[in-house]
């Protein structure tokens, strides 16, 4: 089995796992973790596409590799904002929950 196919399968599996996590974990931190897992799975697929395009003496196509680097930084930025929101919410409301029924009348 070629590494290209193998890591594509791994990426698909990771996306599946994160979808499961997104559905069954109600806590926003768990959702954030699952979203990061989802991102890493998608990025891994970028890596597979890059590896598939190995040519001209390079071990992989540098364009998708560069896109992943930018993508990782953007995903990290989202995580930083989400963590800050989550912690502020925790200190305001006593716990961090995004459940709807809490949207009471102020």
């Amino acid at each position: 089995m070629s590494p290209v196919l193998l890591f594509w399968l791994a990426g698909s599996g990771l996306i599946g796992l994160s979808v499961y996590g997104l559905i069954v974990n109600p806590h926003p931190l768990c959702k954030l973790l699952a979203l990061n897992l989802l991102g890493s799975g998608v990025f891994l697929l970028f890596g597979v596409i890059a590896r598939r395009g190995a040519s001209a003496g390079l071990g992989g196509d540098p364009v998708p590799q560069a896109l992943v680097i930018t993508g990782i930084v953007v995903a990290f930025s989202a995580t930083a904002i989400a963590v800050a929101l989550l912690l502020r919410l925790h200190s305001e409301a006593g716990e961090a929950s995004i459940d709807e029924e809490e949207d009471g009348q102020p």
């Binding site: 990061n36 990025f43 590896r51 992989g60 992943v68 990782i72 990290f76």
Partner: peptide
């Protein structure tokens, strides 16, 4: 996957900095 640059970024940001935040 022959992507050393990505590997370094993943270790530093994806795992390290993101992990620390979480």
């Amino acid at each position: 996957l022959h992507a050393i640059d990505v590997s370094l970024t993943e270790a530093a940001i994806g795992s390290g900095a993101t992990g620390l935040l979480m």
